[in-house]
Design a protein around this nucleic acid. Structure first.
Lengths: 137, 137
DNA sequence: CTGAATCCTCTGGGATACTG
DNA sequence: CAGTATCCCAGAGGATTCAG
């Protein structure tokens, strides 16, 4: 009996077969892990302060409850986020970035900076490309 | 959708207006663009030197021909990669990173460095998590 | 050699309903 | 409040085929 689900319909892919060979590109490994639709946003949102589930869900508005759960589980599994349960009358769970998770936020910031600085250039290039394609120069 | 960071964006202090929004969050925009399965690898592979299609395909081994074509088109559209056709008897096309593309390689390297340095820790955390889950205490 | 087009599969992920 | 379990669909991407 697996806690997360049967092999047929796994909520989380804790499947051990996903690991590539030892010599694989680490970038690929990392991007495969946190390059999904929500991980980075959750990490970012948790950076300022720990949050509870619903608070987090509100902040990362747009995320479905399922994906928030899945994403948090993944991040927890990676040791990037810690999960603390308070067995109060209304159950509350606090999620917070670990030091490890905070360290990941650094390189992500670099990418974010690049993105912020070059977004317009990117869009411009796209527009030009599309225009040229249409007219055939 | 809606911004999840409110007005406060504590992580990227260097970038005002760095908000997680589908339309205004540059990180999301960039990741949506080059956060696919192959773009980064192609950029990486092209970083040392320009390459032709098949050579590139060999280097990024594992990529399908279709995805290489699609990926290159996207990168070209974004102005990250330039495409030069040599109308020789056996047609050859050279792809090379633009200066713009090279600049993107920088932040990606930061992420890559983090990945390389923390891969074992990541795996360890995953293994521990999975083990704990499996035993169910 | 370079690439476009088609087919088809697999999985990410949203909506929803149900537990404790 | 904090999840968990199903259903289901869109889209990414591999394999294959055709074309310049």
């Amino acid at each position: 009996m697996k806690p997360i689900g049967e092999a047929a319909t796994p909520l989380l892919k804790t499947n051990p077969g996903f690991v590539f060979d030892g010599g694989s590109c680490p970038v690929r490994e990392v991007l495969t892990r946190i390059g999904d639709k929500w991980s980075l946003y959750v990490i970012f949102t948790l950076q300022p302060k720990p949050m509870r589930f619903n608070e987090l869900k509100r902040q990362v508005e747009g995320i479905s409850q399922r994906m928030l759960t899945v994403t948090l589980r993944s991040l927890e599994r990676d040791g990037l986020v810690s999960r603390t349960v308070f067995d109060t009358t209304p159950p509350s769970v606090e999620y917070r970035l670990t030091t490890f998770g905070q360290s990941l936020a650094q390189p992500i910031s670099a990418l974010g900076n690049w993105a912020a600085e070059n977004r317009s250039r990117l869009r411009d290039a796209q527009a030009r490309f599309d225009r040229d394609q249409g007219q055939g120069s």
